[in-house]
Design a protein around this nucleic acid. Sequence first.
DNA 1: AACCGATCTGTGAACGTGCACAGTAGCGGA
DNA 2: TCCGCTACTGTGCACGTTCACAGATCGGTT
Lengths: 334, 334
Amino acid sequence: MRVKRPTIHDVARASGVSRGTVSRALNGDPYVSAAALAAVRRAVAETGYVVNRAARSLVTQRTGSVVMVLSEPQEKLFEDPNFSVLLRTATRRLAERDVSLVMMTAGDRGDRERVMRYIRGGHADGILLISAHSGDPLVEELQGAGLPAVACGSILGRENLIPYAAADDREGARQMARYLVEQGRKRITTITGPMDTPGGLYRLEGFCDVLGRRATKKVIEHGDYTRQGGERAMHALLDRVPDLDAVFVGSDLMAAGALAVLRERGRSVPVDVAVGGFDDSPVASSTHPQLTTVRQPLERVAEETIRLLLELIDGAGPVEPVTFPTSLVIRESA
Amino acid sequence: MRVKRPTIHDVARASGVSRGTVSRALNGDPYVSAAALAAVRRAVAETGYVVNRAARSLVTQRTGSVVMVLSEPQEKLFEDPNFSVLLRTATRRLAERDVSLVMMTAGDRGDRERVMRYIRGGHADGILLISAHSGDPLVEELQGAGLPAVACGSILGRENLIPYAAADDREGARQMARYLVEQGRKRITTITGPMDTPGGLYRLEGFCDVLGRRATKKVIEHGDYTRQGGERAMHALLDRVPDLDAVFVGSDLMAAGALAVLRERGRSVPVDVAVGGFDDSPVASSTHPQLTTVRQPLERVAEETIRLLLELIDGAGPVEPVTFPTSLVIRESA
DNA sequence: AACCGATCTGTGAACGTGCACAGTAGCGGA
DNA sequence: TCCGCTACTGTGCACGTTCACAGATCGGTT
């Protein structure tokens, strides 16, 4: 027993003008008299009219929706502070333009096929790619669909295929490494993210840029962005380099784990060991001691990601990837 | 320069039957000959045809999409393990039926208006309500729209308005409280969630059911489901009841914070103080000592939420709320 | 007086589907 | 032979919108 919705005809009748004029008034066509515009506005308010997207879609060949493709196993995704910010920004900015956000997962093969069917079916105007891995077959497939696509954070090895907005991971890592050196730390180690993610690779590269020959394999340990991963890696580093006096950790969450292990094993932070994080996520200011870290302008990255996508959809031709500078946030741990 | 997509006409031509037969074949109408069905299948594969949802929508008055309304400030949402599971389950199960999931936030007034416009515009077949508060005006407004709606977790004070699937918070809390009593604990305290959430209220009620007169105001402290909130509350409890020997914490994340504070203030867990959590979220097995907690069958809750919604959409008439039993998971902290 | 451009308005067609309806063919029974 | 029934197929219309086009009105210019 669904109520019948008012159509553009009802609005036309109520406002005493024709369908065409109502449509023009609603879509901001300049050739509408002030009187007609007012009448239409009143009639819309009166009838509670809302445009029928399906009908519009049918003729404009646009859907008014964008699909966010999550290609990471989701447990990890939700540990990622990036994602939370992005989701909020995306829903806001897209909603402002009356574009709706459709979520799809692309974990296994079946998922991917569904995504491709959806895309090929023309059900979306654009694609928002989240944390795709370098080897992800989805990237190529999406490329083939010819739909506007952007990524939030670069996709390792596909930087030229899909435009993106990202923080400058490499320079951010350099900032932290330089700071640790300036503080007189001599045995600086690092815990990285997974090496098939830009955050893993580029932050390590930045670290090596500054440490040079001191960045031996011995002082590098790989983590997986989780708190437990940070704990594991910290244990391994302490076993291998018992006299380390600094550790640059590739994410705040892992750094929180590292802090716990350091305390557990009797190191005092920052006196014995300096700890640097990355992200400036909420967890950074809730640890003891509070984390010195590298701030990523996540809001701006997210904003820019959406802006790029909308620009592509509007047909502005090819767009350039954008990276944003990071900044050092000095608290207590280093 | 978008490519022209094949329509049902193209498929009809390629398979040598009429539009109508193709439509029937695609929608599983039984009155289609085996030969026609095969021909249509082949033609679909050949042409790469995918149904145009807008056109279908226009005639069926169905949109094939469901909107997930996030009414909580999102920072909190992402601390909630519930949400992650729900999102994964929702995308999977809905995708199986070719229903797409649209995300909308409903934080402020503007957001809410947008949501209502979207709903009223008939852009969705159903609503999935996430962590709405008891005072949320959205609930009433949604109700007025007459669209199928379900909530994941009950909405305090509106249990009869909107059907839901949830874990049995009250009985879960009883299980934990009974266990602590059985272990011979004498000064049992509790840290609750916010009292305007079912998890906050019902878990406290369950606690009081078992503790009876011993559940005085003095042993109850309210938290906000965050780790820091748990720390704050634990400090407050220790100040007020220095000789407490057990604390039942309304979420694992808060319990993790409580554990840290207990260690910091020289209490040994579980010898001096037993700690019980709630959720059995991933964090529960990564604390030291590992958390004894109450397991919620989140997967089943999520599955059931989606099932209820689909049932409502299919017009199965009114549906009953469902609650699932919880179970005690005994680890090290109690 | 005739014409022109600018501004505004109304109308028919098209978008791609599902559904109701009107067929057609084949077959068994009266 | 005719009828009715079942199994299947084809066709016109409607869904609600936008867009192109064809007017209409009006002030100003030739």
